[in-house]
Design a protein around this nucleic acid. Sequence first.
DNA 1: CGGTATCCGGGCTGATACTG
DNA 2: CAGTATCAGCCCGGATACCG
Lengths: 125, 125
Amino acid sequence: MENQDQVCKNGCKAACSENLAAVEDALYVIAGKWKLKIIIVLQEMGNVRFNELQRLIPGISARVLSNELKDLELNGFVKRVVHAEQMPVVVEYISTDYSHTLKPVIMSLSQWGKTHKRKIKEEML
Amino acid sequence: MENQDQVCKNGCKAACSENLAAVEDALYVIAGKWKLKIIIVLQEMGNVRFNELQRLIPGISARVLSNELKDLELNGFVKRVVHAEQMPVVVEYISTDYSHTLKPVIMSLSQWGKTHKRKIKEEML
DNA sequence: CGGTATCCGGGCTGATACTG
DNA sequence: CAGTATCAGCCCGGATACCG
């Protein structure tokens, strides 16, 4: 029986580390306080300018927003569009098609966040 | 038409900030480099002891693991079980029922992580 | 408007050593 | 085994000022 147990545990370890690696890969790109939030806002609002973006995401500073946007652009989640025809220059950020592959992740997180908040509130009583 | 645009944008803002808040609530609890990983391992392995847990999660130090586990226990994701009958004392950590409500989140992240990795690999060529 | 440069403080972290 | 204590470094991120 000890043997059976061991066999099972080892099987679990394999499945486990596979999942672990996949989640790690995902987290590597979208982890952090702001990345997902920026993606959400851009997906829902369409095209957004820098300062408006900052206003829509409470608490983020210009420097951090700027850095995050560069990162997101590098990873193909965000496109930076410059309208040079206007003065002063207008810059807009839009979400890419690829960023929409994150929809399931965002939905499940949002869903869980809602039920979690409900649970917390009930516990307060 | 400018008006229509404005109406739409405002509608989006409402929906947006709702989603934003929900995701924020979720991230508040499970964000960070380790939390989800610990939960995954515990869910897949059943009961795991401290040092084994550390081995299963490459890169985590004892101090950090200890802190994360306390956090997770406080938030109801993990149960700490002490088997006092044995010497030296055996401590096991197990995932709670509530932690299983995160399954959809974990699955979507894992799924996305896999396809993302595939995409990255293709881009390398 | 759309950022960047610099300064600076605090917190997280790894390393190491230690305990019951 | 299952952690905790201490310390030093460093990176993140806020505040502020500034630029085209």
